[in-house]
Design a protein around this nucleic acid. Structure first.
Lengths: 130, 130
DNA sequence: TTGCGTGCAAAGGTTTTGCATGGCA
DNA sequence: TGCCATGCAAAACCTTTGCACGCAA
């Protein structure tokens, strides 16, 4: 049977931030700092554990790991989107592209590999940087 | 002016392994263990520093970072190739695909983003796992 | 009251850095 | 001899875990 679950201040604070910043990417650390700043401090451990749980629940998504950088999280809204990250300035953005589905289909058919669009990260150089 | 550079046993040992295993992915740790095993031990720090230098020189490539996993390296031979990694079994493979260039061109034209094929990692589920 | 959630401190794993020593040219 | 390379130990860094306490239901 499913485990009981409590609604706590901390979880609310995390969810509130995420729903208010739907298209933003953030790290556990930055969320921790933010919550401390607005007077709703949540322990870093709890931030990690809450985000982990939200990922399991499908509410949040862990993504866009740049080399040595900390993991990024974001609120899940709508259909899964791939990320593009600029290797020069580090910016992370969503890739909204119709072509990607066709490409995914090709990968699936010709290379028997089921692409996970939301986990896939495209690296390159963004418009500003080149 | 360019810095002087020495040819050392350690660098040779690393290069020898890499050229003998051109299509393999390996971690700093596994290379360290391998070299110890074949009687050419190289300190882990040196392995990291040598690989870092080889990456700067364009001889090696750092790639396919799975979440909490250590970084993978591989010998660079020929044209840059993207990697596909199976999120279920963790296997890393090269993606040899003609379509990818067309896709990269589209990303460049329509989204003004210069895709770096060799850095990009496609996540998904491999043929065996699904 | 029950037991999940929290938060501190400590440990974990990977990678980097400091520093004295070693070895190539 | 000059000075880059090495390797040990220690630090840095992000993340997870242990454990006692707090708090929602």
């Amino acid at each position: 049977m499913k485990k009981k679950e409590y609604a706590t201040k901390q979880r609310e604070a995390v969810l509130e931030y995420m729903t208010a910043n739907k298209d933003c990417h953030f790290t556990a650390e930055s969320l921790y700092e933010y919550l401390k700043g607005v007077g709703s401090p949540v322990g870093l451990t709890t931030v990690y554990r809450t985000l982990e749980k939200l990922v399991r629940e499908g509410v949040a998504e862990k993504c866009g790991l740049q080399d040595g950088m900390p993991a990024c999280y974001e609120y899940v809204c709508g259909t899964p989107r791939s990320h593009i990250v600029c290797t020069r300035c580090g910016k992370i953005a969503h890739l909204e592209c119709g072509q990607i589905d066709a490409f995914a289909d090709h990968i699936s058919d010709a290379h028997s590999f089921g692409l996970d669009k939301s986990k896939t990260v495209f690296y390159g150089v963004c418009g500003k940087c080149r």
